[in-house]
Design a protein around this nucleic acid. Structure first.
Lengths: 342, 342
DNA sequence: CTGTTAGCGCATTCAA
DNA sequence: TTGAATGCGCTAACAG
C-alpha cells in the first residue's frame, strides 16, 4: 500500500530521501524536507514491506524459535509450564530487541535448515535438541545459533548453549536424600535417550550414591509412560512391597506433583510412607501438599540469556562464555522424610 | 543461495520451467525435463526465498498470533497453562496447514496493524482483545482475522471469534453452589475491565443468584492483585469473620488452586470452613487437594477451531458460524461442601 | 543535500 | 513445451 515511492511522490522528493529520513540518516537530508517527509510517513502509517527487505539484503529480523520433540510424542511440548516460561521470556526479549519471533515445533533437522534458509533467519534458538542432531544442524547452517538445554556429542565445534547444572542438581538432591537416610532410590524421567538434562541429572544421583559406595542400578532408572493412567499404575506399583524404594526422585516437578497427589489419594502417605523429590521448582512444586523438595532453576532466565547471547552473536560482539550452565539450588520443603539419623 | 535461476542454469533450462516443476505444473513441462530438473532441485535442497514470494504476490504464508496483555502487566501472559494449551494447538494446526507462526505479545492496536502490513500476513489470530480495540483493528485491517475469547462492543461488523459459554459456566457454578446451600458468594477475577470471559462469568453468577431473589453486590466482585503475596493476604482476609462468605468463586483454576493450598497452610479447611470453585478444569484443578470443583473447557479445541476457521477465511470458504461459543461442563469434585439441604 | 539506477528471487504474462 | 521480459519494494552505490 503505502510504499517509499508513494511517499516520495506525495512529498515531491526522491525515494532515496524518504529512505534516509526513515533510517534516521539526518546528516543526509535537510531539516526542512526531513520534517515534511516525516509528516507524510506518519500520516500514511508507513510500514516497510519486509519481503522487500529480505530480498534486498538477505536478512529478515526474524528469530526462529524451534522446540524439538520426539516424532510421535503427544504434541504437548508447548504446554508445560517450563517451556512456556522460557518462551514467554524469549518473546519479550526478541520484541524488545526489535526482532520478530517465528515459532516452530519439529523433530526434523532438515526442516530447521529449510526454515532458516527460506526466511533468511537472523538467528535461531533451538530447544531440547539431541546431541547428534545438533551436530548436523550446526554443520549445515551459518546463522547465529543458540541452543537451550542441549548436550553435545563432539567437542570440535563451538556450541552456544544455555543449560543448567543438571548433574549438580541430581547430585545435590541425592546427597540430601542420603543425608536423610535414604539409600533405596528410584530415578524417574521422561525419556532417557532424548531429553536434554535428564541423563545428567541421573548421573548426578549416581555420583552421589557412588561416593557412599552405593549404586543406582539400571532397573532404578525408570522411564515414565506418556499416558497418565499408565503413570499412575506405575506409581502404584513402585510403592508395592515388592520394591524397596524409600524415595522417588523425579526429573520434573510436574510428574513429582502428579505422583504426590495420586499417592495421597491411594492412602499412601508422602513423605511418611515414601519420599518424593522434584526438579525445576515451578508452580507445581509449591502447589501440592506436601510441598515438593526440589531443585530450583530459573527458566525465564534461560530464555533471556539465550536471546542475549544470540543478539551478541548477531551483532558479532564477543560472547564471554559459549556453553553456560545456570546454577541450581536445592530447595528443601516437605516431601522428604528423615528415616534415619545420618 | 540455491535459487531458481541457479537451478535453471544447472539444468540447462529456463527459470520458468523450473518454476513450473516446482509448482507441480506437470501439464506445462515434459516428463523428461521434469525429472531432470526435479533431481537438481532435490540435490540442491532448494528452499524458496520467502522474501521474494512476499514481494511477488503480497502474501507470506505467515499467521500472526497475537496475545493481548495489559500494558504494564507482568509479562506472564504466555506462561499460564491456558495460553500454552491454546498456543500448542495452534502451532500444530498452522504447521500442518503449511503456514508459519509469528508470535507476538502487545497491548497496542497500531502494532497489530503494522505487523500485519509489514509481513503481509495471510491471517491473524488475536487472543484476549478488549472489545473496543477489536473494533479498531477489524476496521483497519483486511486480512482474515479470528479472535479468541473476545467480547465485542458493536454488532454492525461480523467478528469471527472462538469463545466459550462463559456466562453459562458462571451460571452453572453458582446454581450448583446454591443447591449446596451457599448464598454468600464472592467472585474473584483477574481484572474485570480487561479479560475476555470474566465479566460474562460473573454475570452468569449474578443471574443464578437473581433467580433466587439474591444478588451479587459490587463489593463481592473482587479483583485479584498481580502479586502473589498480596493475593494471599486477600485470601486470608476473606476468611476472616468479618466476611460472611461461605464460598469463593474464582474465574480461573490457577488462583483457586493457589487459594486452596494457601488456606490449607493457614489451617483454614477447604471445603469444611470455606468452599472454593475454579474455572477451566486444567491441570491445577486435578492436582490440588481437595480437587477443585470447576467448569470444564477444552482449551486445545479453542486453538484448533480458531485455526480451522482462519483457514476457511483464507481460502474464502464459507464459515458456518462466525461467533462460536464452545460448551462448558460443570465438573463436580471435592472443594465444595454442602452446608444445607436444598 | 538530492536523485538515478541496478539488482535481490520469484510469479506471471506473453511470445516463440 | 519452453523462454524472455516485467514488476513487486527496498537498499546501496554512485552521480549530480
Amino acid at each position: 500500500m503505502s510504499t517509499i515511492k508513494r511517499i516520495a511522490q506525495k512529498a515531491g522528493v526522491s525515494a532515496t530521501t524518504v529512505a534516509n529520513v526513515l533510517h534516521g540518516n539526518t546528516a543526509k537530508v535537510s531539516p526542512a524536507t526531513r520534517e515534511k517527509v516525516q509528516a507524510i510517513i506518519d500520516e500514511e502509517k508507513y510500514a516497510p514491506n519486509m519481503g522487500a527487505i529480505i530480498l534486498a539484503h538477505s536478512n529478515s529480523r526474524i528469530i526462529g524459535v524451534i522446540m524439538f520433540m520426539e516424532p510421535r510424542r503427544d504434541e504437548t511440548v508447548l504446554e508445560d509450564p517450563f517451556s512456556s516460561a522460557i518462551l514467554g521470556a524469549m518473546e519479550r526479549e526478541i520484541r524488545d530487541n526489535g526482532y520478530f519471533l517465528m515459532l516452530h515445533t519439529t523433530s526434523d533437522e532438515d526442516e530447521v535448515v529449510r526454515l532458516s534458509k527460506a526466511w533468511k533467519l537472523d538467528g535461531l534458538v533451538l530447544v531440547w535438541v539431541p546431541g547428534d542432531i545438533c551436530r548436523v544442524i550446526s554443520g549445515s547452517i551459518d546463522t547465529p545459533l543458540v541452543y537451550i538445554d542441549c548436550y553435545f556429542t563432539d567437542d570440535e565445534r563451538v556450541y552456544y548453549n544455555v543449560g543448567l547444572e543438571d548433574q549438580r542438581g541430581g547430585y545435590e538432591i541425592a546427597r540430601y536424600l542420603l543425608s536423610m537416610g535414604h539409600t533405596d532410590i528410584a530415578f524417574l524421567a521422561n525419556n532417557p535417550q532424548f531429553y536434554g538434562g535428564d541423563p545428567a541429572r541421573c548421573e548426578g544421583c549416581r555420583q552421589a550414591l557412588r561416593e557412599r559406595g552405593l549404586s543406582l542400578t539400571d532397573d532404578r532408572y525408570i522411564p515414565l509412560p506418556k499416558d497418565r493412567r499408565e503413570r499412575e499404575t506405575l506409581y502404584r506399583r513402585l510403592v508395592d512391597d515388592q520394591f524397596p524404594y524409600t524415595a522417588l526422585v523425579f526429573s520434573a516437578d510436574y510428574y513429582a506433583a502428579e505422583a504426590v497427589s495420586f499417592l495421597q489419594d491411594c492412602a499412601v502417605e508422602v513423605p511418611s510412607r515414601i519420599s518424593v523429590t522434584g526438579f525445576d521448582d515451578n508452580i507445581f512444586a509449591r502447589l501440592v501438599r506436601p510441598r515438593l523438595t526440589t531443585v530450583h532453576q530459573d527458566s525465564g532466565e534461560k530464555g533471556r540469556l539465550a536471546i542475549s547471547m544470540l543478539m551478541k552473536l548477531i551483532r558479532q560482539e564477543p560472547v564471554p562464555e559459549a556453553n553456560v550452565r545456570l546454577p541450581v539450588r536445592l530447595e528443601i520443603r516437605d516431601s522428604v522424610r528423615r528415616i534415619r539419623q545420618d
